[in-house]
């Protein structure tokens, strides 16, 4: 079973980072994985997205036009990618920054006020981790325990950031479970 997740937002939101953590979690579960960033002549604050493909089999084409799932952290990302998501995919919408909706009746849309939750935790910088927690809790593509381990590993060099990121993950999970 192959699944593809598009993480999208603007530069500085930690989009590539949550893709990286998610890819690590899939690898730790023994799955095949490919993490493909958008790269181009981008500027700070410009769009940023990455695609993570996970599969039980060796991954053929890493080029995917229609991802299974989407985590949209800003409005242009939702506008651009929501129409491409496959039927029954999970679409996480960062409702703190996005006033619109995916406008699709065939996807599982999950509204997560990621920036507001992060702000309550002390810094909007962890909004990406809130969204990641919500996405994984909803899609269940990787186990939540492994995800926690991967968040810890990612911040191993900045240990004092681990507790707030783990809390952000839990808050995201809570939103997904209560929605």
């Amino acid at each position: 079973m192959q699944s593809e997740v598009m993480f999208a937002g603007f530069g500085g939101q930690g989009i590539l980072l949550i893709g990286d953590i998610f890819a690590h979690a899939a690898m730790e579960e023994g799955r095949e994985v490919a993490w493909i960033p958008s790269y181009g002549p981008e500027m700070r604050g410009g769009t940023a997205y990455c695609l993570v493909v996970t599969s039980d089999r060796p991954i053929g084409s890493p080029i995917i036009r229609n991802p299974m799932h989407l985590v949209a952290m800003n409005r242009p990302s939702l506008e651009k990618f929501a129409p491409m998501v496959k039927t029954n995919g999970v679409v996480v919408v960062n409702s703190s920054l996005i006033p619109i909706r995916a406008d699709r009746s065939d996807v599982d849309e999950l509204l997560v006020p990621a920036n507001d939750i992060a702000k309550d935790l002390g810094t909007t910088k962890v909004a990406n981790i809130v969204a990641l927690g919500a996405f994984v809790a909803r899609s269940k593509i990787v186990g939540f325990d492994i995800l926690r381990q991967c968040v810890k590993a990612m911040f191993a060099a900045k240990e004092k950031l681990i507790p707030i990121n783990l809390e952000a993950l839990e808050q995201g999970k809570k939103v997904a479970e209560e929605a």
């Binding site: 890819a23 095949e32 994985v33 490919a34 993490w35 960033p37 790269y39 890493p62």
Partner: peptide, 10 residues
Amino acid sequence: DGLIGQMMEP
């Protein structure tokens, strides 16, 4: 190619 350089795989 650029994709092999940029993508992450195990």
